[in-house]
């Protein structure tokens, strides 16, 4: 190979189960040291793709290349890639210490080295006090740390995480997400996370690939994917979105709600744009451009902010500065020209 391509490269991966295409011609270049997320609803093929990377599943066609080495036909046992399984898959008959040491013992690494490395991992994940206990004596969050330590202690080139937080409660999950992000930054190791939780993907990732029906729909940084969703699916899957359909001519977007200036130039004559509810400005005074007069229909309290549903539309506005608005009030909305993302099929 002539070009230097450190990291993990997937080339035209295909995998079918019977008539169902689980992974459809996926190519990805994951840089060494980045936190990469495969995001998508259940059944989109993200877990299959992860299992192909791990070597637990063989693709029908395509190549897996790790640090310029073709590992396509290497089984999981040979790959320098380790996985944190969704169920953690800890060995119930082994202590926490032995669980973490498992991969090192498989490779017949000397006891003193095993002790050193396991102790380091125990310390790093703050579970050293539990090393003599068994998995069933630990909480879900603690077991998750053990699973993480068990994979990381092998110093893999790539760490795979298969929905590792789905068994944790919401509060713990939010905390673990941040910790996971910090851990990855400190280690500088390549992490690939599979999740269906868009918040999680946005919090932890350097880059996100949004998957649907075995294909990668959009690929980019969290900001790119969230701010400029490519199509309706991405717009709705990553957070809330107001979808407005209309026609584009004379340099303006003509919709049922009015005629708007938009910064992007769509490639279509008739189509959709999306705007996030938190980007719609609400005021008593009529804005200069892209103004809509709307009536408050419903107010939903969400703790940190409010969701206000308005007519016409229905449009959703998310705001934290809540002036004394009541149902039935009339307000002015401004849909920023910059904030409206043009969607494609």
């Amino acid at each position: 190979m002539t070009t230097e391509m450190k990291g993990l490269n997937l080339k035209e991966i295909n995998k079918s189960y019977g008539n169902v295409k689980a992974v459809d011609n996926v190519s990805l270049d994951i840089k060494s040291g980045e936190f990469f997320t495969l995001l998508g609803p259940s059944g989109c093929g993200k877990t299959t793709l992860l299992r192909i990377i791990a070597g637990l599943e063989l693709q029908d066609s395509g190549l897996v290349v790790l640090d310029d080495e073709d590992i396509t036909i290497q089984p999981a046992i040979k790959r320098q890639i380790n996985t944190v399984f969704q169920s953690y898959a800890l060995f119930p008959h082994l202590t926490i210490f032995e669980n973490i040491a498992f991969g090192l013992r498989s490779r017949k690494i000397a006891d003193s080295e095993v002790n050193k490395r396991v102790n380091k991992a125990l310390e790093m994940l703050e579970i050293d006090s539990m090393q003599k206990r068994f998995p069933h004596q630990l909480s879900g969050g603690q077991n998750q740390r053990v699973a993480l330590a068990r994979a990381l202690v092998n110093e893999p080139k790539v760490l795979l995480l298969d929905e590792p937080m789905s068994a944790l409660d919401a509060k713990l999950r939010a905390q673990v997400q941040v910790e996971l992000r910090r851990l990855q930054q400190r280690l500088g190791q390549t992490f690939i996370l599979v999740t269906h939780d868009q918040d999680e993907a946005l919090v932890v990732s350097d880059r996100i690939a949004v998957m649907k029906d075995g294909e990668i729909v959009q690929f980019g940084t969290p900001e790119q994917v969230y701010d400029y969703p490519k199509n309706k699916f991405v717009a709705e899957f990553l957070g809330a979105a107001n979808l407005i359909s209309g026609t584009y001519h004379d340099g303006r977007l003509h919709t049922d709600l009015g005629v708007f200036e938009i910064e992007d130039t769509p490639s279509w004559d008739k189509g959709d744009v999306a705007i996030r509810p938190e980007w719609i400005k609400m005021s008593d005074i009529k804005p200069e451009i892209n103004a809509i007069k709307a009536t408050v229909k419903e107010i939903i309290y969400r703790g940190t902010n409010f969701d206000i549903w308005l007519d016409p539309g229905p449009l959703r506005v998310r705001t934290s500065s809540y002036k004394k608005i009541k149902i039935g009030d009339e307000v002015w909305l401004e849909l920023g020209a910059k904030e409206m993302a043009v969607l494609h099929e």
Binding site: L56, I77, H93, F102, G103, S106, R107, N154
Partner: peptide, 26 residues
Amino acid sequence: LDWTLVEAAQDLYSSNVRIFMHAILP
């Protein structure tokens, strides 16, 4: 049988004997 334990053992570089002893036998 929970096959993810077998996969975990494979993922952690186990020989077939080790897979049997730790993932299947228990």
